[in-house]
Amino acid sequence: MNGNRKIRVAVNGYGVIGKRVADAVARQGDMELAGVSDINADWRSRMVTQKGYQLFGAAKEQADLMREAGLDVSGTLEDLLAAADLVVDCTPKHVAAKNVEIYRQVGIKFIVQGGEKHTVTGHSFVAESSYVGALDRESTRVVSCNTTSIVRTLSALKNAGLLRRARGTLLRRATDPWESHLGGIMNTLVPEPEIPSHQGPDAKSVDPELDVVTMAVKVPETLAHLHYWAVQLTRPAEKEEVLEAFRSSSRIALIRMADGLTAINTVKELMADLGRPHDNLYEVALWSDMLKVEGDELFYGYMVDNQAIVIPETIDAIRALVGQIRDPNESIARTNTALGIGTIAKALGDQ
């Protein structure tokens, strides 16, 4: 495509990820939102048109139902794909794998989310680790929220020459807040039945060199995930050297309990005070004053917003597939600026 033309992006699925991707695309100076496709004719689709986005039905049946509900519908998914350079599939788990057949028939580039298997695209994406490998590809998979956080943090240590192996325990939110009335858990903990849990092997789909094992348990809350990590370093190190490694990633935000950020709800409140849309925490929020180094052993904890952390990765994946921006650092910088990534450090002072 012409290097001076904006990338026309279609979003298929307008759930917790899709609506955030659509808003993020609309904020990029080198992209335009071609439209949003969905199956629902309820309040979610009304938000699409209220924001000024074009609404499409996933098929004629859904488009007709939307029109009957009084919605302004521009056509079907087929029409949307014809008007776009690339589609970001944000449909529920396993649905995207079926949609891939449609995308390939049409001949459009596509991105799927971490609920799909690596084999669907043959490439897994985290901007700081695998951007170059995605350049000009037909497709990629933006890995899950937890996997994204693992790759970001361990890659920062790896790039500093500090990472030998890592073992992590994940406390996973039970469900998304908006649907906690449907499938949340109360008064119990639910262990993931196998060790390693799936996030460690998934991180290796991005970087096979990572020596990482994860364990996970589902907990009765819906705000965010919480990770605890024990890492063996390649050598004894000082705490400041480790913190400097984490600072090398613009998508890791160092926070302090001493600033009153003592729990995940307080971090989400900070996002609201910063004016982030949907209170989005795009970064890994890592407690710097909790972090401990004992010789060649490192221990730390951080928070993951599963509705937001993959959004900047998705924006960078769009640029990589289209290939207009070849340098990952340039794309990351553009995305960060558009989404306000970096404002946590400014709000809290040097960390």
Rank of each mutant, 00 (worst) to 15 (best):
M31Q: 08
R44V: 11
Q50S: 14
A166V: 01
P328M: 03
H94K: 14
L254M: 09
K19T: 06
D327V: 05
I185V: 13
P196Y: 04
I102Q: 14
A333D: 12
Q62W: 09
H227F: 14
P328Q: 09
T314W: 06
Y14V: 00
G275H: 05
D23E: 15
V304G: 03
R5T: 13
I150F: 11
H225S: 10
A41K: 01
I39S: 02
R46P: 03
V132R: 12
Y282Q: 07
L163G: 04
Q351S: 11
Y53I: 02
A58K: 12
D207V: 14
Q232F: 04
N329Y: 11
D30F: 09
Y228W: 12
D279K: 13
I185W: 06
Y14D: 02
W43I: 11
Y53R: 03
R276N: 14
V143T: 09
V112C: 10
M290T: 11
R152A: 01
V95Y: 14
A134K: 03
K117C: 06
T222G: 01
P312F: 01
I252T: 08
S180Q: 13
Q105H: 14
E294M: 08
I341Q: 10
E61N: 03
T214F: 04
Q199M: 15
V106S: 07
G295E: 06
A224Y: 07
R319E: 15
V48N: 00
D79R: 05
T335M: 09
A34K: 02
A216Y: 01
V284G: 03
R334C: 07
Y300P: 00
A58R: 11
L171S: 10
D207Y: 08
V48Q: 00
L189K: 13
A166M: 04
A26H: 05
A22C: 03
T76R: 07
R44A: 13
S149L: 05
Q351F: 13
L348F: 02
V25P: 00
